[in-house]
Simulated scan of single mutants.
Amino acid sequence: MPTGVALRDVREQLLDAAERILLRDGPNALTSRAVTTEAGCAKGVLHRHFADFDAFLAELVRNHVARLDGQAADLRERAGTGTVAGNLTGALTDLFGSVSLAIVGLITARDELRATLRRTGTTGVPVLAEATAMVSAYLAAERDLHRIAPEADTDTLALMLIGGGHLLFAGRDGTAPGADTIHKVVSTAIADVTRFDR
């Protein structure tokens, strides 16, 4: 990058570059040098905008978690439409077929990143915790619409679905499970609460 040329939205460029590296090469390839190279800027730029690399990574996680709010709103709006299993299959595919899976891997691989996130009040495993809340809220909305049993424990079902979804997608080297496989797991998890007299 030529000297004296201002980088437009440099923080966003760095964060976007980090996501591309995560998706392409995985968490172990994510270094400050790799990020600045991918973003096309000088090595010192990242440290001018963030206290250290873990602060940068924490911002990456927080930015991604904030984007999950949109996915949560979309899923809640689907309540009462389509099938419950179909809506959940789509939600798990959207969630784990994106950079979310790589970010979870990054969080679990870096002790200092987890410590940085905890210092800012984060609890649980970011992305997984928010995804669980998203699914639980959707299931509660479906329960209110009488599409699942009134006694359904939406929090426990959400934990099962997010845990199962994570296991289905993790460790596949970029090859997502088929829609039929995901749908089977979802249908099995919610079978007891979708079979009842309305």
Rank of each mutant, 00 (worst) to 15 (best):
G86T: 13
N87G: 14
N87S: 13
L88K: 11
G90N: 15
G90V: 10
G90Y: 02
G90T: 12
A91G: 01
D94I: 00
G97P: 06
V99G: 05
V99D: 01
S100G: 04
S100R: 12
L101G: 02
G105I: 01
G105N: 08
G105T: 03
L106P: 07
I107H: 04
A109T: 13
A109P: 01
R110A: 04
D111N: 04
D111H: 09
E112Q: 14
T116L: 03
T116V: 00
R118G: 07
R118H: 14
R119C: 04
T120L: 09
G121Y: 02
G121V: 03
T123G: 14
T123I: 11
G124P: 10
G124D: 12
V125S: 04
V127W: 08
A129N: 01
A129F: 11
A129P: 05
E130R: 13
A131F: 08
A131R: 08
T132P: 06
A133H: 10
M134P: 03
M134K: 03
V135W: 00
S136E: 14
D144I: 01
D144V: 05
L145E: 13
L145C: 05
L145R: 15
R147V: 09
A149E: 12
P150V: 04
E151V: 05
A152L: 04
D153P: 03
D155M: 02
D155V: 11
L157Q: 06
A158P: 04
A158R: 05
L159W: 10
M160I: 11
M160F: 08
L161W: 06
I162T: 12
G163S: 13
G164A: 03
G164R: 08
G165A: 08
G165L: 05
L168T: 01
G171E: 03
R172V: 10
D173E: 15
G174C: 01
T175E: 14
T175V: 15
A176C: 03
P177I: 04
P177R: 00
G178D: 15
A179Q: 15
T181S: 12
I182T: 15
I182V: 15
I182R: 02
H183K: 14
H183E: 14
V185L: 15
V185S: 04
V186I: 09
S187M: 12
S187L: 07
T188E: 09
T188A: 15
I190E: 06
V193G: 00
V193E: 01
V193C: 07
T194G: 01
R195P: 02
R195T: 14
